[in-house]
């Protein structure tokens, strides 16, 4: 068969991508996992992934490469809903994974029961980051609503992390003597009046507090507060742990629909289970998450986490109920600002 020059170049045009795809295809014969996570876990998984790859190789002889993707938890969940092929998701709150389950059907709705401790191999809590020397004398939630105190927290409607902040404050008010829904709403309303800036995400709030010098207290996840102090020097900020806080559970799960299709179910499952192993627990504690099995972690790391009276999201009726009551349109948060 003879081709005219034009035909030939057309043929080349059609074949080139196909060939290229073939090469890439053969290069990908090795197993890859995509872990879609949220922002502050970057360093943790950077260290955990090679450890798991080594473990997997020694167990099965197979090579596995783990790719990470980080971003705001809500954005990451939406990316998965819109078709990003994540084998596992490790996000900031169960509500985001619920959304993936509900919108795509790629995760069964009872996913949170599949792994121990509500599928959260590590937890955290909400603490206060204050300026060095704690000039406003902040010790507990009640101090945040004193005159002249400015509080920085992200917008709970756009930030998953900020929903924990808000619910921790709510839980504190509920636990006070005579506390009920009304007093809790009154307290949170008071608290939000002390918030001059509502950034759209946790990183934005940290930036506002640390770089712009706005506010006296930053409400933050404990692990992120530690990261901030690490990055910026302990001579500028200190952590204050309130009397009551909330147990923040960033859960993990396999995206069955994707893993089945890509044939990665086994390795994905093993990857998440390895987070509960001594190696995973040790790394979690090293990266400032509270390990669910502290006996496996370095005692020096565990000593950094003071004892706090923790309420859980179940105490507040679970994520679906909390979302509906507080953060949905027309919910308590909207009512507070609607005046």
């Amino acid at each position: 068969m003879k081709f005219s020059p034009i035909r030939r170049s057309l043929l080349a045009l059609v074949l080139a991508p196909a060939l290229a795809a073939g090469f890439v295809g053969s290069a990908q014969a090795q197993t890859t996992l995509l872990n879609v996570s949220y922002d502050p876990t970057r360093e943790l998984y950077q260290e955990f992934n090679p450890q798991f790859a080594k473990h997997w190789k020694s167990q099965t002889g197979e090579d596995v490469t783990i790719k990470q993707s980080h971003g705001g938890a809500g954005k990451q969940a939406r990316a998965v809903i819109d078709g990003l092929e994540a084998d596992v998701v490790t996000l900031a709150l169960a509500y985001d994974i619920d959304a993936i389950a509900e919108k795509t059907g790629k995760i069964p709705t009872d996913w949170q029961k599949r792994l121990a401790h509500n599928s959260s191999p590590y937890t955290s809590t909400i603490v206060f980051l204050v300026r060095k020397g704690n000039p406003k004398g902040i010790k507990d939630w009640g101090d945040l609503v004193k005159p002249g105190v400015e509080v920085i927290t992200p917008n709970p409607k756009t930030s998953g992390g900020a929903r924990w902040n808000y619910l921790a404050a709510w839980g504190y008010a509920l636990k006070q003597p005579g506390g009920n829904e009304q007093t809790a709403q009154a307290f949170v309303t008071q608290l939000l009046k002390h918030v001059p800036v509502l950034d759209s995400g946790a990183r934005g709030s940290t930036n506002t507090f640390v770089q712009r010098g706005i506010g006296d207290v930053l409400l933050a996840w404990e692990n992120e507060a530690f990261l901030s102090i690490n990055e910026l020097g302990p001579d500028k900020f200190e952590i204050v742990v309130p009397s009551i806080s909330i147990l923040a559970e960033p859960p993990v799960t396999v995206v069955d629909g994707v893993a089945k299709k890509r044939g990665t179910e086994k390795v994905a499952q093993a990857y998440l289970e390895y987070l509960y192993s001594p190696v995973g627990q040790k790394l979690a504690a090293k990266h400032y998450y509270r390990p669910v099995k502290p006996e496996h972690a370095d005692p020096a790391d565990v000593a950094r986490f003071p004892k706090v009276d923790l309420i859980t999201i179940e105490d507040l009726g679970g994520w679906q109920a909390a979302q509906k009551e507080h953060f949905a349109d027309g919910g308590v948060f909207d009512q507070i600002y609607a005046r």
Binding site: G74, A77, R78, K157, T158
Partner: peptide, 24 residues
């Protein structure tokens, strides 16, 4: 970054769209 994003005061319309998306 500069708006403050306080409801009813300094929220721009594109932020309202993002807010809706964050709630799926």
């Amino acid at each position: 970054f500069i708006a403050g994003n306080i409801p009813m005061v300094s929220e721009i319309t594109p932020l309202m769209i993002i807010t809706k998306l964050e709630q799926y």
